[in-house]
Design a protein around this nucleic acid. Structure first.
Length: 593
RNA sequence: GCCCACAUAGCUCAGUUCGGUAGAGCACGUUCUUGGUAAGAACGGGGUCACCAGUUCGAAUCUGGUUGUGGGCUCCA
C-alpha cells in the first residue's frame, strides 16, 4: 500500500520535473524570439521550477519578465510538439556553430551520439526527456533574474539567469506563491525590525549586529540555559581574549589556510595582533599551561566566544551571515579511546538543545575525508568510523556527505531548514588532526610518555546570531513563553486600575517573570493590539471586577480568552510554562498585519 | 568579489514619466477622552530626498562615481 502510494508520488514528481525542464526550453524559445542573438548556456529543472542561463546583448530588468512570460504563454497555447533527434558529435558542432557554450558542452560529452530537442523555432542540445508538446506545461511564473557564472566558476563570464516556478495545476502554483509570501513574513530580518530585537546599520558597519534590549533578553535566556546545561554535562566554562599575537595563528596554520577570512593585523608596540576568527587557540593555550595526565582527560572547555571573520560583501545576510558573531564553542581534549563516548555525549547535548528549542526540520550529516587533508588515511578512517558508531548509537537517521570533511578531520553537521527553505548550518562536531601536533597538545599516558590528544571542536547552536535567525523564522516571531522578551503584558482598563496592575507587575517580577504594564492613556483595544503585534504570550486585562476579586482575565496571543482566574493560579501557570521550557502550540504569531 | 535591481521622515511607501528646492499613513509630542479584549479625536514637531562629483539659471528627479541593501552566483573553518 505504502509502496503503491510512493510509486505514484514518484511518477508525479518525475512528470513535474520533466514539465519544469520543458518549461525552461519554452522560456529559451521565448527569449530567442525577443533576442535573436542570444547565446544559450544551460537550463535545468530545479526544486519547484527551472532556470535557464543566457548570454544576452543587454541586461535584463524585472520589467522584461512579463514580456517573456507572455511570449511563453503564446508558445504553450500553440501546443507545439517537442521532437527528439539524434545526430553525431560533428553534426552537433555544425548546428551549434554560433553557440560557444553549447560547443563547450559538446566537447565534453562522452558519447558520439548527441540528442537534440526541437520545439517550434527553438533547437537545443538536451538529454531529455521532455513533455510531448508545450501544451502540457500547465502553470508557471517567472520569479526573478539573477547573475550566474558560466559553469559556476567566478573566473568565467557572468550570464543572466531567469528563474521560474512551475506546477501541474494553477492551484499548486498559487499554493507555492503563498508559501513564498509566508516565508517573507517570517523573514528574520523583517521580524527583527518589527519586534525591535536587533539592527545592522550601514553607519556602524555591514555584518555587525547591534542587539537591542529585547533581542538581548532572548539571547541572555539562551545563554543562561546553555551555560547551565554545559556545566551540568561536565564542561568547564572559560573566557579568552578577542585579539591575540599573529604568530599564534601562523603556527596553527590559520594564516595560511584562512587568510581570506582574517582582518588585517594591528600593530601593538611593534608586535602584530589579529582579531580571532576562532576560539580554539585560546582553549589550547589554557590546556597547555600545565602537563596533563591521562587521568585528567577528557577536558571540555566551553565558551560563548565572539569571533570576527571577513566575509565578502555580497554574502552578508541578516543575522545568518555576519562579520562578527558569537559561537557557542567548546573544545574537547580526550584520549583516542574516549572519543566515541565524547561524540555520543555531544550528539545527545545537541539533540537535547534542538528538541528543547522545538525544531523538527533538521538533518544529520557525516562528512568524510576530502581530497586535501591533514594526517594519514588510517587515522581518518578510524575517526570517521568512530563518528559513525556514535551516530548509530544516537539512533537518529543520518546521511553521509562524501568528501565534505574539513581538511583537518571528519565532522558531523546538523542542518536546519529556514522558513525560506534554505539549509543553515547548525551544530557541528569536528575532529581535529591538525592542531594537536602543531601545538604539541599532549598528555602523559600510563606509560609515562607523551601522546597527542584527540581534539574535538563543537558547537551545538552554531552562533548566537544565526541561531536567533533560525528561531525567529521557526516561530514566526512568536517565541515560546520561556524565550519571549515580554512574557506578560498587564493591561489596566482605566487609570484607577493602575495601582493593582503595578502590584501584579511587581509580584510577577519577584518570580523572575518578565511582566510589563501598559500604562498609556489609551483605551483597551490599542493596548491589546500592541501586545498582539509584539506577540506577547499572555495579556492580563484588569478592571473593576479583577481588582475587586483579586483575579486576572487572561488573553493568549492566539486570541483565546479565559474567564477571570485567581492571580495566584495564573502565576503558577506561567511559572510552570517557563520552567518546563514548553514549546508553544500556536506558532503563527496571530493575525497577519 | 561578480551580475541585476533598489536607496525619499523612526517605520511602510507615494512623488522621478516631462528638472521648478517634498507628501500620506503609522509612530512620536501636547490636549481632550477613563474607555472591557486587534487602531477614539484634535492639534503639533519631524526629511541636506544615502554620500560625492558633474550637466543645468535651477537636480529628490538627468549623468558618473562611492557606500549600503535586496535577489542570485561564487564562497562559507
Amino acid at each position: 500500500m505504502n509502496k503503491l502510494v510512493s510509486t505514484s508520488n514518484q511518477k508525479r514528481e518525475e512528470h513535474l520535473e520533466t514539465m519544469r525542464h520543458s518549461a525552461s526550453h519554452v522560456m529559451a524559445e521565448a527569449v530567442q524570439s525577443i533576442f535573436p542573438d542570444t547565446k544559450f548556456a544551460i537550463g535545468p529543472a530545479i526544486k519547484d521550477g527551472f532556470y535557464y542561463d543566457f548570454d544576452l546583448p543587454r541586461p535584463l530588468s524585472p520589467d522584461d519578465l512579463p514580456v517573456i512570460e507572455n511570449k511563453m504563454k503564446e508558445i504553450i497555447a500553440a501546443d507545439t510538439p517537442f521532437i527528439r533527434k539524434e545526430v553525431t558529435r560533428e553534426e552537433a558542432r555544425q548546428v551549434f556553430a554560433a553557440q560557444p557554450y553549447k560547443l563547450e558542452l559538446i566537447d565534453e560529452l562522452p558519447d558520439e551520439k548527441v540528442s537534440l530537442y526541437q520545439q517550434g523555432s527553438f533547437l537545443d542540445m538536451c538529454r531529455g526527456p521532455h513533455v510531448k508538446s508545450s501544451g502540457e506545461i500547465k502553470a508557471f511564473k517567472l520569479i526573478n533574474v539573477a547573475g550566474a557564472y558560466w559553469r559556476g566558476d567566478e573566473h568565467r563570464p557572468m550570464l543572466q539567469r531567469i528563474y521560474g516556478v512551475a506546477f501541474d495545476t494553477e492551484a499548486a502554483l498559487e499554493e507555492h506563491l503563498q508559501r513564498l509570501e509566508e516565508a517573507a513574513r517570517r523573514d528574520h530580518r523583517k521580524l527583527g525590525k518589527e519586534l525591535d530585537l536587533f539592527s545592522i546599520q550601514d553607519e556602524f558597519g555591514p555584518g555587525l549586529v547591534l542587539w537591542h534590549p529585547k533581542g538581548a533578553v532572548v539571547r541572555r535566556v539562551i545563554e543562561d540555559f546553555w551555560k547551565e546545561e554545559h556545566f551540568r554535562r561536565g564542561y568547564d566554562l572559560v573566557y579568552t581574549p578577542h585579539i591575540a599575537r599573529m604568530d599564534l595563528w601562523r603556527t596553527s596554520g590559520h594564516l595560511e589556510f584562512y587568510k581570506n577570512y582574517l582582518y588585517s593585523p594591528m600593530d601593538i608596540e611593534g608586535q602584530k595582533y589579529i582579531l580571532k576568527p576562532m576560539n580554539c587557540l585560546g582553549h589550547i593555550s589554557i590546556y597547555k599551561t600545565r602537563l596533563r595526565s591521562y587521568r585528567d582527560l577528557p577536558l571540555r572547555y566551553a565558551e560563548l566566544g565572539t569571533v570576527y571573520r571577513y566575509e565578502r560583501s555580497g554574502v552578508l545576510h541578516g543575522l545568518s551571515r555576519v562579520r562578527g558573531f558569537t559561537q557557542d564553542d567548546a573544545h574537547i581534549f580526550c584520549r583516542p579511546d574516549q572519543l566515541e563516548d565524547e561524540v555520543v555525549a555531544v550528539l545527545d547535548l545537541a539533540l537535547f538543545m534542538i528538541d528543547t528549542f522545538g525544531f523538527q526540520n533538521y538533518q544529520l550529516l557525516l562528512s568524510t575525508r576530502p581530497e586535501k587533508y591533514a594526517g594519514t588515511v588510517e587515522i581518518w578512517d578510524e575517526a570517521t568510523e568512530t563518528l559513525r558508531r556514535a551516530l548509530e548509537r544516537s539512533g537518529r537517521d543520518y546521511e553521509i556527505d562524501p568528501g565534505e570533511g574539513v581538511f583537518y578531520g571528519p565532522k558531523i553537521d546538523i542542518k536546519f531548514e529556514s522558513a525560506l527553505g534554505k539549509a543553515w548550518q547548525g551544530p557541528t562536531i569536528q575532529v581535529d588532526f591538525n592542531l594537536p601536533p602543531r601545538f604539541d597538545v599532549n598528555y602523559v599516558g600510563e606509560d609515562g610518555r607523551e601522546h597527542p590528544v584527540v581534539m574535538v571542536h563543537r558547537t551545538v547552536l552554531g552562533s548566537m546570531e544565526r541561531f536567533l535567525a533560525t528561531l525567529l523564522e521557526h516561530y514566526g516571531g512568536a517565541f515560546p513563553t520561556w524565550l519571549a522578551p515580554v512574557q506578560v503584558r498587564i493591561i489596566p482598563v482605566a487609570d484607577r486600575h493602575l495601582d493593582y496592575a503595578r502590584q501584579l507587575e511587581t509580584e510577577l517580577k519577584d518570580e523572575d517573570i518578565r511582566a510589563e504594564v501598559d500604562a498609556r492613556a489609551e483605551r483597551i483595544n490599542p493596548k491589546i493590539r500592541q501586545a498582539q503585534l509584539e506577540k506577547v504570550p499572555y495579556m492580563l486585562v484588569v478592571g473593576d471586577k479583577e481588582v475587586e476579586a483579586k483575579t486576572v482575565s487572561v488573553r493568549l496571543r492566539s486570541g483565546e480568552q479565559t474567564a477571570a482566574q485567581p492571580f495566584a493560579r495564573f502565576k503558577e501557570t506561567v511559572k510552570s510554562a517557563i520552567a518546563s521550557r514548553a514549546g508553544d502550540s500556536e506558532r503563527s504569531g496571530g493575525k497577519a498585519n
